[in-house]
């Protein structure tokens, strides 16, 4: 069975600003891979390449066996790559329900919207109470939940989760990771970009350690501890 996502010698950046230098990475179906590293090493760029937001300047991106190097962002989404971007990841000017509708309608068609919505609210009742509220007025944690629920209803092949814990209180981070665990149980592969290493290590099978735009180390999560420690300059535990 081929990998859901494969990056082959990917270089990428923003104009003259280079962020990735020859990254190789693959995610097998159902697998959870964590990408860790200190800030500014290209983690977010890696996430954006994985979901088609940033086109690599060289190298190949393969989704489910098909070459997606020059594909458009929406084609990635249709091929089953979902992306929960760093920071705000919902449409602030749309209501909760509209946010959900937008992705559900594409996946299930007009007739499936109602059922999809019900499913989503069942999964996370707090959202049901706020269905007519603008997503921008939700708290940071609720916004992440909304993004996740959207993904769950989607049932994508791969979820790229970029710094989901960013700016959230530790308790909320726990909840978000619990949610990620549920996403994983549905068979969706995960590419988790994380700064807070401990959560990522617990959740994922494999760890990729990025340093200044290249892969410094990759291997099973169980062996990651000391590498992470030397890289980040802080003890993992």
């Amino acid at each position: 069975m081929s990998a859901v996502l494969e990056l082959d010698d990917v270089h990428a950046g923003y104009g003259p600003f280079r962020a990735l230098f020859g990254v190789n990475l693959s995610v097998a179906p159902g697998e959870a891979v964590a990408v860790v590293g200190s800030n500014g090493v290209g983690k977010t760029t890696l996430a954006r390449v994985a979901s088609g937001l940033v086109r690599p300047t060289s190298g190949r991106v393969v989704v489910d066996g098909n070459d997606f190097t020059r594909a458009r962002t929406f084609q990635f989404a249709r091929a089953g790559v979902a992306h929960a971007p760093e920071g705000r990841s919902t449409f602030a000017s749309l209501t909760v329900e509209e946010n959900l509708e937008l992705s559900i309608r594409r996946v299930r068609g007009n007739s499936g919207v109602r059922a999809g919505l019900d499913e989503a609210y069942e999964m996370f009742p707090a959202l049901a109470e706020r269905r007519q509220q603008l997503a921008g007025t939700l708290s940071g944690g609720q916004q992440r939940m909304l993004a996740m629920v959207r993904v769950l209803v989607d049932a994508p092949k791969l979820l790229v989760a970029d710094e989901l814990s960013l700016g959230l209180a530790p308790l909320i981070v726990e909840q978000v990771y619990e949610m990620l665990g549920r996403v994983r149980e549905t068979g969706t592969a995960l590419l988790v970009i994380e700064q807070h290493v401990s959560h990522a290590l617990k959740l994922c099978d494999r760890v990729v350690l990025l340093d200044r735009g290249s892969v410094a180390w990759a291997g099973p999560a169980s062996e990651a501890g000391e590498h992470v420690q030397s890289q980040l300059g802080v003890p993992a535990h």
Binding site: L171, V173, Q195, V197, S198, P235
Partner: peptide, 16 residues
């Protein structure tokens, strides 16, 4: 500061 528990918490996400 680097060796402080706050530093570890901030960077590793453990509750303070």
């Amino acid at each position: 500061v680097m060796a402080s528990p706050e530093m570890r918490a901030a960077y590793l996400g453990t509750a303070v």
